[in-house]
C-alpha cells in the first residue's frame, strides 16, 4: 500500500466518528425539540382563550400572547438552524484538522 493510500485510509477511518456524532445531534435538536415545543404551546393557547372568554385578559393582551407564541417558535427555529450551522462549522474544522494530522503523520514521519 502506498503512503497516499495510507493517508486516505487514515482520513476515512477518522471521519466516521465525526460524522456519527454530528448526525446524532442533528436529529435531537431539529426534530424532537420542535415537536415538544409545539405540544407545550398548544396548552398555552387553550389557557389564554379561556382567560379571554372570562374577561381576565384584554383582546390586546390576547393578541400579544398569540403573536408572542408565534415569534417564540421563530426564535426557536432560528436557534436550531444556528446551532446546526455552528455544528457543521466545527465538523468542517475537525475534518481539516484530521486531514492535516494524517498528512503530517503519513508524509513527514518521525
Amino acid at each position: 500500500m502506498s503512503k497516499f493510500d495510507d493517508f486516505l485510509s487514515g482520513v476515512s477511518n477518522g471521519l466516521a466518528p465525526l460524522v456519527t456524532d454530528f448526525a446524532a445531534g442533528l436529529r435531537k435538536d431539529a426534530v424532537d425539540d420542535m415537536l415538544a415545543f409545539l405540544d407545550a404551546k398548544k396548552d398555552d393557547l387553550l389557557r389564554w382563550t379561556d382567560l379571554l372568554a372570562k374577561g381576565q385578559i384584554t383582546q390586546l393582551e390576547f393578541t400579544m400572547l398569540v403573536n408572542g407564541a408565534k415569534s417564540l417558535l421563530k426564535l426557536r427555529a432560528l436557534r436550531v438552524a444556528g446551532v446546526q450551522l455552528a455544528r457543521v462549522q466545527r465538523l468542517r474544522s475537525a475534518f481539516v484538522d484530521l486531514v492535516i494530522q494524517q498528512a503530517v503523520g503519513t508524509f513527514l514521519p518521525g
Binding site: M64, L65, S71, L75, R79, V83, A86, R87
Partner: peptide
Amino acid sequence: PAMGAQIQQVGAAFDEIICLEANK
C-alpha cells in the same frame, strides 16, 4: 395573567438568543 404569561414567553425568547450564542 397576561403579565405572567408574557414574562414567561419573553424569558424563553431570551433563552433562545442566549442558547444560540453559547452554541457558537
